[in-house]
């Protein structure tokens, strides 16, 4: 069943030259987590706020469970949309206890119901014993979980999360996001999740929507986005690609590091660019090789090498963490991968 439909949504802020959101359309199925990902200023947060009803769209429409909540003629205010939202800064009410924060969205229910729902929610996020505390007495991770419990308590049809982990420390972030994804999947929530972090998007999203400059570049499952990037931007943003020039030949693509055997639907001799990620490249010491080791970064589980081809082109390559080669050594680099590469005509 379709929970959310966004149709040709556009929004331009007063005094701004560019549209924050430019003709975006997508749909979201029940129980699905969609990660909206893109660099800062790409329009992902604005899209979220439009869905929440915190902003009014210039054109286009938003449907929740088939019912229009925003269009040219309709605008349902946020309090009537039945949407839960988790804010970047958590936005816990500092004058209310953890219990009252979670109960805030449950007005109109009787006291017993409220108590049992809040208890259930706090149990779910592991904070049942914290219910009498105030937000300032909690750690960052605990606040994050209260914010989630508060958003989920009224059983919203849709949960919106705006960079919910960005205020947490790096090591805590991984732990909290695993916990949060487990909770969201347990209660089968429908979620739109906004992040600028590609790792987080790949981890959280059942599907990913990549945005740039207010436009939707690509939407699909994580593997599609990663391996079958539609645009150069998506390939670059998702997974730090290098782009190597090449020419379409009969049996593959001729590049500076040899022939890449991959058939493309382009006329012969077309100039193309191949997106190469560090795990696609392999190399070995070779005095007459095609490139030079410029730098090596020890990254713990692996080594990241920076290679310079004779043309000046830079490529990055992973090797296992025990394989240490000297900077300045001449090596022969080549493509070594079992999946097809993203190729863009230039």
């Amino acid at each position: 069943m379709t929970t959310l439909q966004v149709k040709n949504l556009s929004k331009k802020f007063h005094g701004s030259e560019f549209s924050a959101v430019n003709n975006i359309s997508f749909e979201l199925q029940n129980d699905e987590i969609l990660a909206l990902v893109g660099p800062s200023g790409c329009g992902k947060t604005t899209t979220l706020r439009l869905i929440a009803g915190l902003e009014r769209p210039d054109s286009g429409s938003i449907l929740l469970n088939g019912e229009t909540v925003a269009s040219q003629s309709v605008f349902i205010p946020p309090e009537k949309r039945g949407i839960g939202m988790v804010f970047q800064d958590h936005a816990l009410f500092p004058h209310l206890t953890v219990f009252d924060n979670v109960a805030f969205g449950l007005r109109g229910k009787n006291q017993n119901d409220i108590r049992s729902i809040v208890g259930e929610m706090l149990h779910m996020v592991g904070l049942l014993s914290f219910s009498k505390r105030y937000p300032h007495e909690l750690s960052g991770g605990e606040r994050q979980r209260v914010a989630l419990a508060r958003a989920l308590a009224p059983q919203p049809v849709l949960v919106l999360m705006d960079e919910p982990f960005s205020s947490l420390d790096a090591d805590l972030r991984t732990e909290v996001r695993e916990h949060v994804r487990r909770i969201l999947k347990t209660i089968q929530a429908t979620v739109v999740f906004v992040t600028h972090d590609q790792d987080e998007a790949l981890y959280m999203g059942d599907r990913l929507a990549v945005l740039q400059k207010g436009q939707l570049e690509q939407i699909g499952n994580p593997q599609e986005i990663f391996h079958e990037s539609n645009t150069r931007f998506v390939a670059e943003f998702m997974g730090d690609s290098d782009f190597l020039k090449g020419k379409v030949m009969r049996d593959g693509i001729q590049t500076e590091i040899g022939l890449i055997k991959q058939q493309v639907d382009l006329p012969l001799s077309t100039q193309v660019e191949i997106a190469l990620r560090p795990d696609d490249i392999d190399f070995h010491i070779d005095g007459s090789g095609n490139s030079l080791i410029i730098e090596r970064f020890f990254r713990g589980p692996f080594n990241l090498y920076r290679l310079r081809l004779d043309s000046g082109q830079i490529l990055h390559a992973f090797t296992e963490h025990t394989r240490i080669l000297p900077v300045g050594a001449r090596v022969q680099a080549h493509v070594n991968t079992d999946h097809s590469l993203n190729i863009f005509s230039s």
Binding site: E79, K80, G84, A91, A151
Partner: peptide, 23 residues
């Protein structure tokens, strides 16, 4: 006062007037 507190109140079912008095 962060405006997200008021926005949170709206998404939790309060009108703008209720938000003003309660948050």
């Amino acid at each position: 006062l962060s405006p997200t507190l008021e926005e949170a109140s709206r998404t939790l079912g309060r009108t703008s007037i209720q938000t003003m008095f309660q948050v």
